[in-house]
Design a protein around this nucleic acid. Sequence first.
DNA 1: ACGATGTGTGTAATCGTTTACATCTGACGG
DNA 2: CCGTCAGATGTAAACGATTACACACATCGT
Lengths: 352, 352
Amino acid sequence: MGTRRRAAKVGVVELAQELGVSTATVSRALNGSPSVRPELAQRIRDHAEARGYVANRLARALSANVSRAFVGCVIPYVDTPAYSAVVAECARLLSADGTQMILTITENDPERELQQLKELVASRVAGMIIAPSTHILDASKQLLSALPVVEFHRACGIDAPGVFSADEHAMAEAVLHLAALGHTRIGYLGTTEKLSNGPVRLRGLRRGVELAGLDLDGLPMRLLEPTKSNGQRGAAELLDLDRPPTALIVGGGALSIGAAQEVRERRIQVPSELSLVVYGDPSWFALSDPPLSRITVSYEDLARRAARLLISRLEGRQSTRAGDGAGADDVQLVPAELHIGGSTAPLAARQG
Amino acid sequence: MGTRRRAAKVGVVELAQELGVSTATVSRALNGSPSVRPELAQRIRDHAEARGYVANRLARALSANVSRAFVGCVIPYVDTPAYSAVVAECARLLSADGTQMILTITENDPERELQQLKELVASRVAGMIIAPSTHILDASKQLLSALPVVEFHRACGIDAPGVFSADEHAMAEAVLHLAALGHTRIGYLGTTEKLSNGPVRLRGLRRGVELAGLDLDGLPMRLLEPTKSNGQRGAAELLDLDRPPTALIVGGGALSIGAAQEVRERRIQVPSELSLVVYGDPSWFALSDPPLSRITVSYEDLARRAARLLISRLEGRQSTRAGDGAGADDVQLVPAELHIGGSTAPLAARQG
DNA sequence: ACGATGTGTGTAATCGTTTACATCTGACGG
DNA sequence: CCGTCAGATGTAAACGATTACACACATCGT
């Protein structure tokens, strides 16, 4: 009370005065410039430490007109495994790098996304990692083309490197697996085509159907926004068809939950009455009985690659001169894999 | 190529020159100061818009020595419902407020936490929302006492407002519920006492035991760090006891999954052979058969309160002068609730 | 007609760093 | 003994905004 004075803010100026040197020397010492006498440098560092000096990042970033003080991370949601993974990995790797992550969440709203991008460039972020919203605006794309960007999980057609899951093969495999078990009416409950994975999975589905010699047009299918309630509704619709599918492929974590719930509520036996393949690998899958056949991709892997990619971009940006050389030359695909569990069985089992 | 010139950066200075006014006027116009002629102000704003001007947040924040440009959000993990909720809510509310969120993840490492706090104050964040790591360092507490902070979900004994879940009552209720069903050997698998909720739940447990007239010392109990594998291990240990519990209370999302998995693998029938009460409300709970009896708390609610609290703190800080008036005067408790599902049954059912 | 008031702008200091350039010192070769 | 050069340090100009203060001009009361 009264004794402890208002801890007079300590900046380079104060340090310089107290040590009888110039601010330039202080700055150099603190940044480890070789051109300052080692013993003096040490003295300065000690003093800074003692006085509890912490450099103002804002001033630093402002001065060095381009800096790696901040990067932006722009995602639609945070409570979904892919996105929370990328947040975690970015935070980890960037923090080791001394740069901070500004996180913004679009909730898939293009307007909000644009606004957030604007604010990020206003904060002079060194780069961004983005999972674009579904209907990204042109203005957003334009902003994105002005700095190092890596796309994650969803593509929006800008000229940037990115990391995506390659679902196509696994999807085709799933169809072939079911076909081999004798299923011909295979239902598909997937994410809308607007989400970048939608088309990819659909392509895989088509390929599988083709290879299996089945007829795509006859296949019952629902493409929806990935929410739990949509999963339940979609499954209900498919199961209510005149000739309901004997096997169901569900793409997308939230959809899977809803679908699984609907199946359970209808007391439909899996796999004897319905074969089920789900997409994703939330921890609860381990709980379900029987263990589900599923298509998985390692989001940690995906996320780590994305974070590394961004960091390497940042470093590249630093050494090479202008905003060239970025390009989409570095697109990484992490393959999804089909794991056969106990939720798929020969069709015969049902007929009998 | 070559045609489009290096978009000469546009700042207030350029705008001022181009319009033949001073930078002061430009700044005032853009910030809506009433002291600039309305038509001129409009002209300036139009021009800024046309030239695609975006103010440099760093410069702005540096100039106005205290600003609401950034706030920090410091959490142990992001893939856990409580924390992802707080991240989402903060991002949403703050973005509406025009301030950006710098997210850092401690992974429960006190050293890293301290480091991150330092860097956040270096970035002159206007405030912070923090779920402290388990063994927070004194240096960290000291840093936290220098700016508006709200604690979330875990307390670390600093003098700040916070939002926590009040598990005590629900916990006691759970014990009483089980006791009423005839159970006397009730097992508890909970989070370690070092996590702030640990003691609270334990207190609730004790209270319930006391009210039920049971003997606490005889109760099998395991307190572990909340991971899935710990859940499995803990459950295994409890079930392997000579006189295993007939009812089990599991606290903590990750622990629940592990425990549920262990129970399933042992083909123990719930609730006929074992009554089960879990803590949390992940979406997969809906899947389990029978629907679990559980203790839930709305993390969205918790998170929203925390975010609002922080924002109101920021505004308070802005109006009132110094770093006083903060205090822990505003601690909010969101009560947890016990929902009876189908996973608890009278003990008789087993004996018979 | 003159000072007081008020409104709208401009000038320049400020925030806290970094860094290009200038300066000073001593060593060294011729 | 003097230029040259390198190394260590200081001076001051950036970075891009905000804002205290000064100033010009119109308005108004007396």
